[in-house]
Amino acid sequence: MVGPDHQRLKLTFFPIRIGRVPQIVSMIRQFVRYKASANHVQPDIVITAGTFLELLMVRLSRRTRKAFKVTWLRTIWVDQKTYRIPALIRPLVRKTEAWLLRGADLILGNGSDIAERYSVYGLKVTVIRNAVDLVRWSAPAPKIASPIRVAFVGRLAIDKGIVEFIEMARRVKSGPLADDFIFDVYGHSGEEALVAKAADAGILIMHGAVNNEALPAVLAELDLCVALTKSDPSRGGGGTSNAMMEQLASGRVMLAWDNMIFRQWLNPDNAYLATQNDVDGLIKQLYEIRLSPENARRRAANGHATVSHFGVDAMMNNFDEALQQAYESYSKTNPLRPRSRD
């Protein structure tokens, strides 16, 4: 929805055609065709957000490839797709990704783990952390009363830790404190079959995908959210999680892996951390929360305070500064064109 504050934006949507061909292929085709046929002035600046695939679209279109190109990385694509890319060709895919990113005039990332990962390939990434709408996600403090509601919110992907979440729920529900916890899963796109099987066994409740408009109300009813995206030295990190920031802004208790992704934001004073892949460590933290709900509420409040410095205005100010500096440097060696209507 475009409100009064965003009327400067002219939106064009490309419907994704779902089939055997990857969805990005449909998106690229539509974008290139649209730019080739529409009567648009060549833009001065093009900004893409996501991965190198959006930049690929820009480089394939004659109307955009000569513009000043900004790529805002939200994740490390190859690491995110590790489980789908054969190990034999993974190094080649990484190098191809880096080669394509060199076509950007400014590369931004939403986490220092992204910057560190791509620096291996000689790429400079300017870090601008994600922003969160603090007002929209505001919610009453969690109750943390038995039964404690523990939730996984996000893509049901292996790299997001859904397997460990299910195993944690299974062990707790087979133990003496089974009635003290309820495990909720909100999300889709991934291991739905595993989640459905666990739900059928009474281990957890499977809610499926939730409309973003309804998500603040959903979070307000939860006590604790998990952040279990995996990271390791060979794969790097996964960028900052928007879901984690929203959950912090809503004042939920956070239970996360103690890895390079979440250490950018979380610590033992504003969250509960466990060694990555250690399900028993997660369960130990759950039991600690049960024994000391007041301490859990304190950490949740600290988490909210941590994210309170990362509102939308602060992020846009950082972005504006980075863009101006990079574009001024670029303009010294590239002739300026008339301001575009696109």
Rank of each mutant, 00 (worst) to 15 (best):
D159C: 00
T51Y: 08
W72L: 11
G111I: 03
R74E: 11
D113M: 08
I107R: 11
R29S: 13
V78L: 03
F31N: 05
P147L: 04
A141R: 09
A98E: 08
I144A: 11
A131G: 14
L53M: 14
M57W: 00
E97T: 12
E97Y: 11
K95C: 14
L100I: 15
K143T: 14
D105G: 05
W77Y: 15
V93Q: 02
R117I: 00
R62D: 13
R149C: 10
P147C: 02
R59H: 11
I28N: 08
V125L: 03
A151T: 12
S112Q: 06
Y118F: 14
V132E: 02
Y83A: 12
N130F: 00
T82G: 01
K124Y: 00
I107Q: 04
L88E: 14
L100A: 15
T96K: 08
L106M: 08
V153I: 14
T75G: 13
K35A: 14
V93R: 05
Y34C: 07
A145G: 09
L101E: 08
R84G: 03
K69T: 12
E97H: 13
I45R: 09
E97A: 12
M57C: 11
I76M: 03
R62E: 13
D105A: 02
L123R: 05
W77P: 01
R102W: 11
W137S: 01
T75A: 04
A87V: 03
P147A: 07
S61T: 09
H40R: 03
A145R: 13
V153Q: 04
K81Y: 13
R90N: 01
R59Q: 13
V78D: 02
I128W: 07
L106V: 06
A131V: 01
A115F: 02
P43C: 10
A115M: 07
G111N: 06
R33E: 11
W77K: 07
W72Y: 15
R33S: 14
L100V: 15
T82L: 05
L53R: 09
T48D: 07
S146L: 09
A104S: 15
V25D: 06
P140Q: 11
A115T: 06
V58K: 10
L100N: 07
P142T: 04
R94Q: 10
P140Y: 07
V41F: 03
V93D: 05
L73W: 06
V32Y: 09
W99P: 01
Y83Q: 11
A141P: 07
G154T: 06
L123V: 03
R74D: 09
S61I: 09
P86D: 04
I45Y: 05
N110E: 03
V58Q: 10
I24H: 12
Y83D: 15
Q30G: 12
I158K: 10
T51K: 06
A139W: 03
A98Q: 05
A38N: 07
R149G: 04
V58C: 06
Q30E: 15
L55T: 01
R129Q: 11
H40Y: 13
V153K: 01
F31C: 08
Q23L: 07
D133T: 04
T82F: 05
V70Y: 00
D44Q: 15
R63A: 13
T96R: 12
